[in-house]
Design a protein around this nucleic acid. Structure first.
Length: 603
RNA sequence: CGGGGUGUGGCGCAACGGUGGCGCACGUGCUUUGGGAGCACGAGGAUGUGGGUUCGAAUCCCACCGCCCCGACCA
């Protein structure tokens, strides 16, 4: 019995063990839906609940809405359960990714979550990676790791399987759970510790081959984010701990994003601020003037100093101090109006970690915090921004409390160990390609692509025999997309004050059928049941609100949950000639004859 | 790891030294059915954990744990 019209509250009373009508088709495999996922569902049966209030600990819209609408629940810091609705969305997202990966010839497989540590010791990452990698011992006392990524495993497979250039190029990918023990998770699904990632790996004979594979992946990524409804911009990025020669990040523009992007609206230049090299105002060419010490009491900041001396911050040099890899003391010098870009610094000195120096460490080198400069410093690696090196007659610290030096010039007054681009791009700086002022925006990284090169294959001896009869290391690339993070970004991009509005491509169900007034009018239940059964039979996913709830509750939940189409069946709609169809995203609503609604539900 | 918050029923909150309440949600019954309905009855809590102060602690003190936000860090 499907009894909405025969028994009040049928939805609530119905035993969950009842064999339902044809609408419940667990065995059916609809298009794009994997076996085991019901292609259609009654809300009276669904494992979910909606919340009237925002959860107190959720701030971002995606977090609030996904919890309120019954898609996810938090288990611990940065650890989430995907409830049936959320799991369906994740599967839809995965399917989009899968189709685009398959389309460029990438082969799906599955690699383990738990790895023997030996493999990670071989590449050195066992030692290089800090506490963000979870480690444990198995019962035999062997070191094991929870995988953060899978370069090691792929390279290990390559050395076993690939012998000849004839087996290349090759692209593989998988969806797998990663665990990264983040020092701080945040933002709901945006930054978590356990998450499913699609990671793909390309394997080529040489750099030229890698370029081709990289471009294929780049194209696939663009199509994926297009289909997912995430307006992601590709930006040049740092290669970081992954190593390699070139990398892009696909960024979803959002104020809550943790990365800062440098964008040029005129020519389309885009880069992560970590590596962006913009043009600042050039220093005037001047003849070096004699060095002169001036008393500057209480001017430990550039702003105070500039005001005290009546000069522009641009005419000063400032020093920032770091300790690299826990041992090397580094003095980084940039112009007073600019900031040190730590990524550029760490790359320039080929360090792997960088931390701010303590005051006593600074004093130990003979420098005076607030009045510091490399002049008279000892034991510090002096790294100078190229703009400072080109400037004449700057004001710098005198390494004496309350004093600065005027007319400091390189190399007359001190000798840098290194002159590099060291400053952080600023809003309004000149675009490196066209010169127009750049803008800064925050972004969330939803995908990344890296040219890895031979770092891992060399370490593991994953070589192939070339046409030339010689062994060469396989050239790899690595390509990731966080599935849960993508889901959250989709919600960020597709919601309003009422709730989520899923793009059709990723919606857990295509339509949300709402029956209103079924108790009073048996015809309503009959029609709604019929539409639901039809949708199910045609493999089109539909959600059917058969609960005995008031209209307000049903409408509110439907809008919160966000299926693309809301189909309302009520005495009123029947009197008007059919069912009312509301497009969730636009609010556009119209009464359509049942035959048309049926066609819609058939897909 | 620093800084700031916060832990009370499924969710949101109140009670701030004297036997823990409210709204929503939940159960039962009746009424109600186009925008989070009404009435009645009802179930559900070692107030994060452990110490301490006190005649008496959800409340004050200490420690620990969890969670959130900012920063450091990180993909």
């Amino acid at each position: 019995m499907n009894g909405v019209h025969t028994t009040p509250r049928a939805g609530r009373r119905a035993s969950r063990h009842d064999a339902r009508d044809g609408a419940r088709t667990g065995a059916r495999t609809g298009q794009g839906v994997r076996p085991g996922i019901l292609s259609s569902m009654r809300l009276s049966q669904l494992f979910f609940t909606t919340l009237r209030d925002d959860p107190a600990d959720a701030e971002m819209p995606s977090h609030r809405l996904l919890v309120r609408a019954g898609y996810v629940r938090q288990l611990g810091a940065g650890i989430y359960t995907l409830l049936p609705l959320g799991y369906r969305v994740a599967k839809r997202v995965e399917q989009v990714i899968r189709e685009e990966m398959d389309a460029i010839g990438s082969q799906e497989m599955e690699m383990p979550v738990v790895h023997p540590a030996d493999l990670w010791k071989e590449t050195g990452r066992w030692y290089a990676i800090g506490p963000e990698m979870a480690r444990f011992k198995d019962r035999g006392g062997h070191d094991m790791v929870l995988a953060m990524t899978h370069e090691e495993v792929v390279a290990d497979l390559l050395r076993d399987i690939v012998q000849s250039y004839r087996q290349l190029p090759l692209m593989v990918y998988h969806f797998q759970t990663k665990f990264r023990d983040e020092p701080r998770s945040r933002g709901g699904l945006i930054r978590v510790r356990e998450f499913v990632m699609k990671d793909a790996y390309t394997c080529d004979v040489d750099e030229a081959g890698l370029d081709v594979s990289y471009q294929k992946q780049y194209g696939a990524y663009a199509r994926i984010f297009e289909r997912l409804g995430i307006g992601a911009v590709a930006v040049a990025s740092d290669v970081g701990m992954m190593g390699g020669s070139q990398a892009h990040e696909f960024m979803f523009l959002n104020p809550a994003g943790e990365d800062v992007l440098v964008l040029c609206e005129k020519c389309g230049f885009s880069s992560n601020r970590q590596v962006a090299r913009t043009r600042a105002s050039e220093p005037p060419a001047e003849e070096p003037l004699p060095l002169e010490e001036v008393e500057t009491p209480g001017t430990a900041t550039i702003a105070d100093l500039a005001a005290f001396l009546g000069v522009d911050a641009e005419r000063t040099a400032k020093a920032a101090f770091f300790v690299a890899d826990g041992e090397r003391f580094v003095a980084a010098i940039v112009r007073g109006d600019m900031e040190v870009n730590e990524t550029k610094l760490v790359n320039a000195i080929k360090a792997s970690t960088l931390r701010a120096a303590q005051v006593d460490e600074i004093r130990a080198t003979g420098m005076v915090p607030g009045y510091a400069s490399p002049i008279g410093a000892r034991g510090a690696l002096v790294v100078v921004d190229e703009l400072v090196a080109r400037s004449s007659n700057l004001v710098a610290g005198a390494n004496r409390e309350g004093y600065h030096l005027r007319n400091v010039n390189i190399p007359r007054d001190y000798t840098p160990d290194l002159v590099v681009d060291l400053s952080s791009a600023r809003e309004g700086d000149g675009c490196p390609t066209c010169g127009s002022p750049v803008i800064l925006r925050n972004g969330i990284e939803v995908g990344n692509i890296f040219k890895l090169g031979t770092k891992y294959t060399t370490a593991l001896g994953a070589n192939y025999l070339g046409e030339d009869g010689l062994e060469h290391p396989i050239v790899m690339g690595s390509y990731g997309i966080g599935v849960g993070r993508a889901v959250a970004c989709i919600v960020e991009a597709h919601h309003d004050e009422k709730g989520i509005a899923w793009p059709a491509e990723v919606a857990p169900y295509a339509a949300h059928i709402v029956a209103i007034g079924a108790v009073r009018d048996p015809k309503v239940a009959e029609v709604a049941d019929g539409l639901h059964a039809l949708a199910a039979a045609s493999g089109r996913e539909a959600l059917y609100d058969d609960r005995d709830e008031s209209p307000g509750v049903k409408f509110t939940d439907a809008e919160l949950m966000g299926m693309p189409l809301i189909v309302t069946v009520s005495p009123r709609s029947l009197a008007a000639g059919g069912a009312e169809v509301t497009v969730r995203a636009t609010g556009e609503r119209s009464v359509m004859p049942l035959s048309e609604v049926e066609a819609l539900l058939r897909g």
